[in-house]
Design a protein around this nucleic acid. Structure first.
Length: 216
DNA sequence: GACCAGGCACATC
DNA sequence: GATGTGCATGGT
């Protein structure tokens, strides 16, 4: 089986097992971006509490959040962990919005995808996965998001080495699949959900993983 | 109490 | 260039 057919089969298997994901949970593109920073190496349940606190404080909006003293912002996002670092990262993202789009995320619609990606990556604390999550889930660009689960899962299924780099794994998907926002959205979501539900074990084989059939 | 969670930057060799 | 470490809360 070729890579494309194999990926499509895995996608179908996961979708049939889990159903569609409805990602990204966020009411606005700005909220999606905030969530992307807050969920770095952090369980989403902890991020939800921080998002609720920001909404309660009426600060889930660029200029309102920017008006917060850094220590108050850190206090609001405490439950998401790494709160001092993440407060600084949010601050950097807000400064980008101030300087590059006059607080209006819709102004980024005029940016070509690669240009927007580089713009996001210029913020300290926004790396490849965070930038790509924003591009796909907030800005609707056809960019495949790679994360730790993706590398773990596809290495375990013998499709890449354990040490595969981010851009290599991303290229594996994007070269094989159509540049389809809805497909990339759901596929990444399914990989994360599958990883959570079935593939936490460090053992080379995960007996109950719905993708195990593709090992052969 | 150990381990993990939808990373990233930085120091050191 | 590769490898190690700090950042921190909350659930299992």
């Amino acid at each position: 089986m070729g890579t494309a057919a194999r990926l499509e089969s895995m996608y179908r298997s996961m979708l049939d097992s889990l159903g569609s994901s409805g990602w990204w949970p966020g009411e606005t593109p700005f909220e999606v971006c905030v969530g992307a920073i807050l969920t770095q190496n952090t369980a989403w349940t902890n991020v939800e509490k921080a998002i609720a606190a920001l909404q309660e404080a009426e600060c889930m909006e660029p200029q309102a959040m920017y008006a917060l003293p850094p220590e108050e912002l850190a206090a609001l996002i405490r439950s998401a962990g790494y709160f001092n670092i993440k407060a600084a990262r949010l601050r950097g993202f807000l400064e980008l919005l101030r300087d590059r789009c006059d607080w209006n995320l819709a102004a980024f619609d005029d940016f070509e995808t690669g240009e927007l990606r580089n713009t996001l990556l210029s913020v300290k604390g926004i790396g490849p996965e965070t930038a790509d999550s924003m591009l796909l889930y907030a800005f609707g660009r056809p960019v495949f998001v790679v994360d730790a689960y993706t590398a773990r899962m596809f290495a375990r299924h013998g499709m890449v080495s354990e040490e595969v780099e981010y851009h290599e794994l991303q290229a594996l998907f994007m070269d094989a699949l159509d540049q389809d926002v809805a497909l990339y959205n759901e596929f990444h979501a399914l990989i994360v959900r599958t990883g959570k539900d079935w593939c936490k074990k460090k053992a080379p084989l995960c007996e109950t993983c719905p993708l195990k059939t593709f090992l052969d």
